[in-house]
Computed example of a mutant assay.
Amino acid sequence: MKKVHQLYTIISALVLCALASQSAFALNAPRVELETDLGTIELALYPDKAPETVKNFLTYVDAGFYDGTIFHRVIPGFMAQGGGYTFDFSEKTNRDPVVNESDNGLSNERGTIAMARTSDPNSATSQFFINLADNSRLDGSAQKPGYTVFGKVLLGMSVVQRIAAEPRGQYKAFPDAPNTPVRILKARRKELDTGGAGQ
Rank of each mutant, 00 (worst) to 15 (best):
N104L: 06
K92T: 03
G196Q: 09
G169K: 06
N104M: 03
F89I: 10
P30F: 11
K55I: 06
T118P: 06
F78W: 15
I70K: 00
A18S: 11
S21Q: 15
Q22I: 11
F89D: 08
A80E: 00
G77D: 07
G169C: 01
A165S: 04
A63Y: 02
G111E: 11
E33A: 15
G111R: 14
M115W: 07
S158H: 12
R73Y: 11
F57V: 01
G169A: 02
L138A: 03
F129C: 00
R73S: 04
D67Y: 08
Q143C: 01
A177P: 02
R31I: 05
T118Y: 03
L14G: 12
P47L: 04
E33M: 15
F128E: 01
L16M: 12
E42G: 09
F150K: 00
N28Y: 14
A26L: 12
A50R: 01
Q143W: 07
K144V: 10
Y66L: 09
A114Y: 00
D67C: 06
A29T: 13
D96S: 11
S90D: 11
L7S: 14
A142K: 08
L155A: 04
D193G: 06
G196P: 09
A50Y: 03
E109D: 14
G146K: 05
D96N: 07
D62S: 01
Y8E: 14
Q22L: 14
S12G: 13
L192F: 13
D67F: 04
A50M: 00
G83K: 02
T125K: 04
F174S: 04
P175D: 02
Q22S: 05
D176G: 02
T53L: 05
A20H: 12
A26E: 15
K190Y: 05
M157I: 08
S141T: 11
D120S: 10
R189E: 10
L45Y: 05
Q127T: 00
D176A: 10
R117D: 01
E42D: 10
K144A: 05
A44D: 10
A80M: 01
L132G: 05
G196T: 13
F128D: 00
P76N: 07
T69M: 07
S102I: 08
H5E: 15
Q22C: 10
L19M: 13
A116H: 00
F71A: 00
Q143K: 11
K92P: 01
K92L: 12
I184A: 00
Y85H: 10
A20L: 15
V74P: 00
D48P: 12
T125H: 02
P181T: 06
G64T: 04
I113L: 11
Q161H: 04
L132W: 15
N131L: 06
L38G: 06
E52R: 13
I75E: 07
S12C: 10
R31F: 09
A24H: 15
R168W: 08
V54K: 01
L58G: 07
V15D: 14
L27F: 15
V160P: 00
Y8P: 09
R188Y: 07
